[in-house]
Computed example of a mutant assay.
Amino acid sequence: MSTPIDTADEVLSGEAVAIDIQPLGFFMRTLGALIDMALSWALFLLFLWLRTWLLVTGIVTGAIDGIMNVLAIVVCFVVVPIVMELALRGRSLGKLAVGGRIVRLDGGATGFRHAFIRALIGVLETYMTFGAIALLSGAFTARSQRLGDLVAGTYSQRVRTPKLIPLVAVMPPALAGWAQIADAARMPDRLARRITQFLQHAERMSPSARARIAHELVAETAEYVSPQPAAHPEQLLIAITVLRRERERRALAIADARAEKLSGRHVGV
Rank of each mutant, 00 (worst) to 15 (best):
Thr30Pro: 05
Leu252Arg: 13
Arg204Glu: 04
Ile121Asp: 03
Thr154Val: 05
Arg250Gln: 15
Pro172Ala: 06
Thr30Cys: 08
Ile35Leu: 10
Val151Phe: 15
Gln157Glu: 11
Gln235Trp: 02
Gly177Phe: 12
His114Met: 06
Ala142Tyr: 11
Leu93Gly: 05
Ala63Val: 12
Leu93Phe: 06
Thr129Ala: 00
Gly111Ser: 14
Thr57Ser: 13
Met37Glu: 00
Thr61Phe: 10
Lys261Thr: 14
Pro81Arg: 00
Thr154Ala: 04
Arg193Trp: 13
Met171Val: 02
His232Ile: 15
Val83Arg: 04
Arg250Glu: 12
Lys261Gly: 10
Asp36Ser: 05
Phe130Gly: 10
Arg118Phe: 08
Ile165Glu: 08
Thr129His: 05
Leu237Trp: 00
Arg158Tyr: 12
Val60Gln: 01
Thr196Gly: 13
Leu175Ala: 01
Leu86Thr: 02
His201Trp: 15
Arg158Cys: 09
Phe47Pro: 00
Val159Gln: 01
Ala42Val: 07
Phe198Arg: 02
Met1Gln: 09
Met37Gln: 03
Leu135Cys: 09
Ile195Met: 00
Gly94Ile: 07
Val70Glu: 06
Asp6Glu: 09
Val74Gly: 08
Thr154Gly: 02
Ala230Gly: 08
Val70His: 10
Phe27Ala: 11
Gln235Leu: 09
Val151Trp: 06
Leu43Asp: 01
Ala174Phe: 04
Leu120Glu: 01
Asp36Ile: 09
Arg51Lys: 13
Arg91Gln: 15
Thr241Ala: 07
Arg29Asn: 00
Gln200Phe: 15
Val74Pro: 09
Pro173Met: 03
Ile5Glu: 02
Gly94Arg: 02
Lys95Pro: 12
Gly99Met: 06
Ala230Leu: 12
Ile73Tyr: 05
Asp9Phe: 05
Thr241Cys: 12
Ala259His: 10
Arg146Met: 13
Ile240Trp: 03
Arg265Gln: 13
Val103Pro: 11
Ile64Phe: 11
Ala255Met: 06
Leu236Phe: 03
Arg193Phe: 10
Gly107Ile: 03
Leu236Gly: 03
Gly108Ser: 03
Leu46Thr: 04
Ile213Thr: 13
Thr61Asp: 00
Val242Pro: 00
Arg194Asp: 11
Thr221Met: 12
Gly148Met: 00
Phe130Asn: 10
Ala219Arg: 14
Leu175Gln: 01
Arg190Gly: 14
Val218Leu: 14
Arg113Tyr: 11
Leu55Cys: 04
Val170Ser: 07
Val78Phe: 09
Leu88Ser: 11
Arg244Asn: 12
Phe130Ala: 12
Leu88Gly: 02
Arg190Asn: 12
Pro81Leu: 01
Leu71Asn: 07
Glu248Asn: 15
Ala42Pro: 07
